[in-house]
Simulated assay, not measured.
Amino acid sequence: MRKTTLGATAAIAVLAGLIAAGPAPAAPATTPTATVTPTASARQQVAKTASVHGKARISYIESLDDDIRFTIDAVQKPFSRTWPGNASGRMATDAWGTLKFSHTTPSGAGGWAEAEVDCLVTSGRTATLTAVVTKSNVEEVGARLGISVQQGAEGEPDRLGFSWGVANIDPGSVDEKGDLVRPQAGTCMAPAPFTTVIKGGFKVVHADIRKSPAQPGAASRRG
């Protein structure tokens, strides 16, 4: 560490001179001005973008011997999509990326799907996202799937939930065979993360939802 060479006597003399001089003169042009910088937390909030990344194998109570895997790469890009029928046309939770899953039974039979992420919302270590199927041997192309992810903490495992695993039924909707029809998940809608990750894991980055931009004529519509 560099030590000062100014002795105590000199320091007192300088201080006395400053006190006796009366009001401080204007700072010379060469004196650097103080720069106000954002706090670390403020910079962090500005820089953060909500996202979920990772791949994992899960343990699902209905298929304990099956190999079920998910790969997620999702990034929130607010107000970047056009939604027909939506007043603003875009949403703060708009997102882009990919979702992939595969489900293989001990006999070798398997199902898989690839989907395009369209919505993502986060809260701490938890996130929900939806993705629209683009390719699959078990899902209908165009169907929206809901996924939830919870990143584990303090040694706890990560967890994941998926809309076709539990709960997502409409008791009043049946097909020609009389079977219940599973409704499509709404944007960012998914059940709680009810399965446990047994291999791999996910990284959730949280960012607060942004305020929607003002819409032209919004005040007049409110009356």
Rank of each mutant, 00 (worst) to 15 (best):
E176Q: 13
T128Y: 07
G186V: 02
T134C: 12
G146Q: 05
N168T: 05
L180G: 07
A167N: 12
K211N: 12
L145A: 06
K177S: 15
K177Y: 14
A143P: 15
C188V: 03
V166W: 11
T130E: 03
K135T: 08
I198K: 05
G186H: 11
V141E: 10
G165N: 10
I147L: 06
P183I: 09
F162R: 01
A192K: 10
G142P: 03
S173D: 14
A127K: 04
G161P: 00
G161R: 01
E140P: 08
P183R: 01
G146V: 01
P193D: 02
I198S: 07
V141T: 09
V204C: 04
C188R: 03
N137A: 08
R182D: 14
P213D: 03
P157V: 01
R125I: 10
P171L: 04
R182F: 14
P193R: 03
L160D: 08
N168H: 12
S136R: 02
V204I: 01
G172T: 09
T187W: 14
A153S: 13
L129M: 05
N137G: 01
A153W: 15
V132G: 07
V141F: 05
A192M: 13
K203R: 14
P191S: 10
D175H: 02
S212A: 15
P157G: 04
S136A: 02
T196I: 06
R210E: 09
K211I: 13
T126S: 15
T126W: 12
P171M: 12
G142C: 07
V197A: 07
S123T: 12
E154C: 09
G200E: 07
R159G: 06
V197M: 00
V174H: 10
H206A: 13
A190F: 01
V204A: 01
P183G: 07
G165D: 11
N137V: 02
E176P: 07
D179P: 15
T126V: 15
G152N: 09
R210P: 08
A190R: 06
G124R: 08
A143G: 14
S148H: 02
